[in-house]
Amino acid sequence: MTRVSIKVDGVEYEDDVEPRTLLVHHLRERLGKVGTVVGCDTSNCGACTVLMSDADGHQQGVKSCAVLAVQADDREITTIEGLSGPDNTLHPVQRAFHEAHGLQCGFCTPGMIMAAVDLLEENSDPSEQEIREGLEGNLCRCTGYQNIVRAVRAASEEIRRSGGDAEPAAPSPLAGEGHTPDSGLPRQSVPDETIPQPVP
């Protein structure tokens, strides 16, 4: 057993772990952070993506199935469960996934959202191609990625509009209210495609 001290979603945890324990299993099974999931055993699918600080304290996306818990000693980690702000306000990327229907079964979603947050930290105005390549470490079987790409574009616009930081924003007043069914993504954010309407 090795003693590790890891800050996860703002809380310090000290635990004794077997050296072979993967970070993702430590998060899920010891710390109860079951929002982060395991989708493969070869670090292809990216469902387990979390943000983890590097030696210089800079948080970046990693696959928590390809990190040993002992390697995360003294590091700081943000999972999907720590992404929302106080009062459970959604992060712009979370909100954009909802607004743009960027998820179906939702299993890849925690990893996909964390990967998108990581991408936007580095490039706040990615092109469609840059988004596609930036998410190449994450597999989704439901969406064909189209609405994921759309969501990341929309989130990047919102983050830039709100001053370039990825601070959690207030929940959308548009989602979930009865009389604005076609609210959500601004049309200008989805060039070449619009939400299809029945052809008369």
Binding site: V34, G35, N88, H98, H101, G106, T109, I113, G176, D182
Partner: peptide, 23 residues
């Protein structure tokens, strides 16, 4: 009917509060 409602399911899925069997 006919409106592009944002999904109810998303709230738990985008916040990691989902009940997968493995959980």
């Amino acid at each position: 009917i006919g409106s592009p409602r944002r999904r109810k399911e998303d709230a738990r899925l985008i916040t990691g509060r989902t009940t997968w069997t493995e959980n």
